[in-house]
Amino acid sequence: MVELRLPHNSTIGVGKTVLAPEGAKNVRTFRIYRWSPDDDRNPVMDSYEVDVDVIGPMVLDAIIHIKNEIDSTLTFRRSCREGICGSCAMNIDGENTLACLKPIKSIEGDIKIYPLPHMPVVKDLVTNLDGAYAQLRSIQPWMKADTAPPPDKERLQSQKERSKLDGLWECILCFCCTTSCPSYWWNGDRYLGPSVLLAAYRWIADSRDEHTGERLDGLEDTFKLYACRTIMNCTQTCPKGLNPAKAIGHIKELQLARKL
């Protein structure tokens, strides 16, 4: 039976509260999920009051400020701070998004920050993504063509053919979508998830790739592809505005087209 509740070691308690400094004008409270392997306790929610007038506009600015000025043990992934690397993916105000693209002003009340859902927590807001990366590798996200490329130029592709890749190549592999999917929560060991399926479709839709049949063969499985129940959390949450549900729909259409 699937576990709808969190395991015993994962239920969340109340942590510490740090109040705003004197003279702070525009105070917002950030409630952040904390757990360390060196703790001998369950995860907790720590509350940090921050004067948002002295920091940048995004949630990432706030947690960097907290780490620099208040609590240096706060741990999270971050890099480009401009929404292109995918490192700072986390659950903010109930939805998965990139912290560097989420304006603090867009959130009402306390800003609640959790790690990406239903994942093993390494520390604080950092989750283990090894499984997801392996799933990406398993669909062979590279060009597979038997025809030799032209010796003096690139493989040719018309504008119409290239337009089929729009909405697919822009994926930054942040895994917001995959970890927002209830089907992936319950069956993430066998279901590939929206991000990996979008990547698979990116290569299926590429006119220069010549192994489309094999790629479709590799997805024809009750769980790998068909565990998608069109719940649509993925499209709702993608911070880059992409549409994994639509890409998965296209794959299913192609699978059917081969059979009928």
Binding site: P37, E95, P120, V122, Q236
Partner: peptide, 25 residues
Amino acid sequence: GSRSDGTLVQRPMSPHLQIYRRRLS
């Protein structure tokens, strides 16, 4: 996972249904 001293530790699972925003969809 492992602690700083190398001993193994059971990692918690991050919350899902408990915290995810309930959109109409």
